[in-house]
Each structure stands twice: as structure tokens, then as C-alpha cells.
Amino acid sequence: MRKHTLAALLSGVLLAWPAFAHHSFAMFDRNAQVEIEGVVKEFQFTNPHSWIQVMVTPADGGAPKEWSIEALSPNVLGRAGWKKNTLKPGDRIKLLINPLRDGNAGGNLLLVTLPDGTKLGGGA
């Protein structure tokens, strides 16, 4: 049941994606999906878009690097089940994203997996 709800939510959200957004997503590679794992540094629940600043340790074990992950507005996320404290500094989370096309450490949020395993759509 929960999976169905999530799938429905995701499909609805994905279909509506370009129109919810406040700016185009030209800078993201919408054909690519990457999962990153890291520790939340900051969650900005703001307009026009929300942001997750997350520290990601590279696969080769180097120093953690800060990524900026973009999600939609608090109103859109709120209707998808997000709260202002859904992400707290120090939380270890997984993020499914469309990466930035220029190779910088950032992306567009598709799905977040919270520390307790709950999955939430990014609204985009």
C-alpha cells in the first residue's frame, strides 16, 4: 500500500515536473539519475526552491565534499509530506538526483531516503 502511494506520488510529481518549477531545469541532466549518500549539513526550506546541503564522502575515501541539492518550494514539498524538520543536520541520508550537467557537486532531488528508511519525493 505504501509503495503504491509512493509510486503514485512519484509519477504525479514527475509528470508535473517542469511546470512546478520556478526556473528551467536546463542545467540538470534529466536523462541521468545518480544516488549519493551523505550527512545533512543544512536544510533550507525556502522559496523559490528548497535546498539540501549535504556532505558526501567520495568513493575513493577523500575528504567529504559539500553538495547542493535542489528541491521544490515548501508548499509543493509540504503537500508531498515534508516538514520543516524532515531533514536535520547530522542525518545520514540517501538522495536520488539528476546531476548537474557541468559536473559540479549538485543536482535536482528526485527521492530522499531518510535515516529510518522513509522515502519522500523531492517534488521534482
Binding site: 508535473a16 511546470a19 512546478f20 526556473h23 528551467s24 536546463a26 542545467m27 523559490p48 508548499n75
Partner: peptide
């Protein structure tokens, strides 16, 4: 520019008022 990955002419992305009729193109 957009095809090259640049976010061109997106004024609401900097909090500028969308105005009419552009506001009708958003899903709220």
C-alpha cells in the same frame, strides 16, 4: 542556451514577480 544547459531568461528563478500571463503556466 537551454539546450546547452544554461538557465536562460528565468526571471522567477530570482524571485521576480511572474506577471500575467506567465503565472498561468505554473502548477499551483
Amino acid at each position: 542556451l537551454r539546450a546547452e544547459g544554461f538557465n536562460a531568461r528565468d526571471k522567477t528563478g530570482t524571485c521576480a514577480p511572474p506577471g500575467f500571463p506567465l503565472i498561468l503556466t505554473r502548477v499551483y
